[in-house]
């Protein structure tokens, strides 16, 4: 069972928020999108995806709603809340600062 430990802690939340910011989708669609976008770099198993989504819902950042999909099938659709949007901005900012700081360190010339 692979864990999201491959990802820097907290980044999975940010990615999920970002996807849902683009459009509301169900869990399956999120997992498809993760794979599509990141190729095989970000290994997020389905087993980690759902707990992560539930946690985001619990925090009030996303809400879920049962809807009938394009194939006439009922599914749980997640969408971003106002709080979630704010959270996403915050985490994106943090991520920006962190990654630029780390890359500055990595680019230091060795003496």
């Amino acid at each position: 069972m692979s864990k999201p430990s491959d990802l820097v802690q907290g980044t999975l939340d940010m990615l999920l928020l970002k996807f849902l910011a683009l459009e509301p989708m169900n869990g399956f669609a999120v997992s498809q999108r993760l794979k599509q976008v990141s190729g095989d770099v970000l290994q997020v198993s389905d087993g980690s995806l759902y707990p992560a989504l539930h946690k985001l819902e619990q925090e009030g950042w996303i809400t879920a709603e049962w809807k009938t999909s394009e194939y006439g099938r009922r599914a749980k659709y997640y969408s971003l809340t106002r709080l979630g949007r704010r959270q996403l901005e915050k985490e994106a900012d943090n991520w920006g600062r962190l990654s630029s700081a780390i890359s500055r360190v990595i680019k230091l010339k060795e003496a």
Partner: peptide, 15 residues
Amino acid sequence: LGGIEQTKEKCRDAR
């Protein structure tokens, strides 16, 4: 999915 029951338990944990 890494074991349905485990995943369910993790989801419950999150809630």
